[in-house]
Write a protein that binds this DNA or RNA. Structure first.
Lengths: 148, 148
DNA sequence: TTAAAACCTTAACCTAAGTTAAGGTAAAGT
DNA sequence: ACTTTACCTTAACTTAGGTTAAGGTTTTAA
């Protein structure tokens, strides 16, 4: 194997993930490989960054589906540049900003609402089920109708 | 049925959840009921607040397991007071503060690390798989993003 | 050259947080 | 009285993000 191709085990070790995870990501369309004569997967070193980005994004709560979508913005024909990656992460940063702001809002309501007993379903984002709940539920990101 | 007892359908409607969810919560030990002569569930009105609190906590990314644990601090023999509930939510507030701070840290690393290519597994919290906080419970907290 | 290590595929399994369906009983409204 | 609605239980199914196992092939190292 030349310097420029990596086996699945090598990629797994370098990224700190299991081989099965790489199979899984490939099946989900998040990474790509080609096969050698013996039908074994081979990867470009570029895959290492993809996997690192996947792991980083997951850490901040971005789903594989969202990550896959974001990866669509990466060039197909050439290795992504620093600028390509930076654009991608900038978008996520903005999402994160919104998420953080939302969490802060909920935190501020937390003690007040749980303690006071108002249970104001209509006004309080903590109790209002229409104020998008933490749907681990189905489908892609449901954007919230922010009240106020 | 007197004023002081609620059927499962009534509770479901007032809380905006499905009957099956209430069965599920009971099975998980998050709420309690007794049975009438016909083997149907009956609830104290107190259950309404429990369910609201469950929903509020879930919204900020707290798992049912953690909620159940927190509920252990509530008195068994009497209806929880405002103070009981406030203590509980104060603990969660502190957890939320930590979570928010962590997310902010990750956000600050986001553009820099994804863009720069350092991929420093040892130093960067974005890339360090051993950096635990994010994976409390099962997987990252997925919160919906606030629009606008 | 031969044994071990790495790889392949398919399928089943796992957790969380429920939902849906099936088949039967109780309560409520007319 | 009768019909509809609400309720009961058990079991299977759902999604996300993988993991584990089984059985077979390829690479690599001694």
């Amino acid at each position: 194997m030349t310097e420029a191709t990596l086996s699945v085990g090598r990629v797994a070790k370098r990224c700190g993930v299991k081989v099965s995870t790489l199979h899984f990501y490939e099946q989900k369309g998040l990474i790509k490989s080609w096969r050698n004569d013996g039908n074994q997967r081979r990867y470009k070193p570029e895959v290492l960054r993809r996997i690192s980005v996947i792991k980083a994004a997951q850490k901040v709560g971005i789903s594989l589906e969202e990550i896959k979508l974001a990866f669509l913005s990466l060039p197909d024909s050439r290795t992504p540049t620093v600028e390509d990656w930076q654009l991608l992460s900038t978008n996520w940063q903005q999402m994160l900003d919104a998420r953080i702001a939302y969490l802060q809002k909920l935190r501020d309501y937390m003690t007040g609402c749980i303690g006071c007993g108002c249970l104001s379903m209509s006004k309080c984002p903590l109790y209002n089920p229409d104020d998008v709940l933490a749907t681990q539920g189905t489908g892609p990101v449901i954007l919230e109708q922010a009240e106020q």
